[in-house]
Design a protein around this nucleic acid. Sequence first.
DNA 1: ATTTTATTTTGTAAATATTACAATTTGAAA
DNA 2: TTTCAAATTGTAATATTTACAAAATAAAAT
Lengths: 155, 155
Amino acid sequence: MEKYEKYIEILKKNGMKVTPQRIDIMKYLDEHRIHPSAEKIYSDLKEDNPSLSKTTVYNTLEALSEHHIIQILTISGSELRYDFKTTPHHHFMCKKCGAIIDIDVDCPYLGKFMGMGHRIDEMHGYFKGVCKDCLEKEGRGENPLKTEMNIVSEV
Amino acid sequence: MEKYEKYIEILKKNGMKVTPQRIDIMKYLDEHRIHPSAEKIYSDLKEDNPSLSKTTVYNTLEALSEHHIIQILTISGSELRYDFKTTPHHHFMCKKCGAIIDIDVDCPYLGKFMGMGHRIDEMHGYFKGVCKDCLEKEGRGENPLKTEMNIVSEV
DNA sequence: ATTTTATTTTGTAAATATTACAATTTGAAA
DNA sequence: TTTCAAATTGTAATATTTACAAAATAAAAT
Ligand SMILES: [Mn+2]
Ligand SMILES: [Mn+2]
Ligand SMILES: [Zn+2]
Ligand SMILES: [Zn+2]
């Protein structure tokens, strides 16, 4: 795995200095599409680079997101999660196991919102519930949404 | 303003004890549809009830959300915001002034997601940008989304 | 109306995530 | 090679949320 060129390219294209920490963090996000937290990125990368600072992780994530190289997900509510993929897509979070997975659809409402006069910079579609794997382990249980809206299709 | 009956009804219907603090918090959320934070609810209500505890605010918000009397928004990323309205709708947050406003649309993807085998309990549509008012004060500026996807309609 | 009891409220302390800051290091331009 | 703005590091501070135990109280039982 010696493919750093990809990340160096991206950094240079954005006028950012190329540092080993930035390359490591980008590579980690690119190869771990689980939308990890800053803490997970830090603790995993620290194994191979013990001098890595948590502040560097936060600084880097902030810088990358400002350049739209990564996007920040607020789906969890307790910690920010980071996504190497910046093209619009939705996310599902399992409240049992914490997994966050991509849902590849694009939102049909963007045009409508633009017409309201606001400037839209980001859009996030978040769904929360219990994932297929967890359901198979623990049973399907109740679906709170069903009581409050009409479900289009049931599995 | 002596309409506590509404909130008492809701609490009783959900098998929750009726307390003045819970009534105050529900009434506040019902009458302040700005999706306030726990801190804002606390500091505003504390003026009329100086013995109110912040823990009570958090406990109450947690209890109300578990009974689906309110919903929790993770749109901000730095603090949770609370919404008395629980029927599905989207939100827009202005990154300049912090305002969060309702967008009344419903998501056409719910059926598709259900078909994937996950149990969906919540859905959140979050849009972020700069609101109309802030734009009029400070100019429209750049729209980062425009570079990454095709905008359907521009104002 | 009084007693009883499980629940709620309260205040403080602890936990967690994130940011601020100053000293040191370093990437890259000169 | 020298220079220097920018990045990294470690620590301290901040902010939000949760844990916990004692006191208060809503509501059920008497
Ligand atoms: Mn994603
Ligand atoms: Mn709302
Ligand atoms: Zn799961
Ligand atoms: Zn605004």
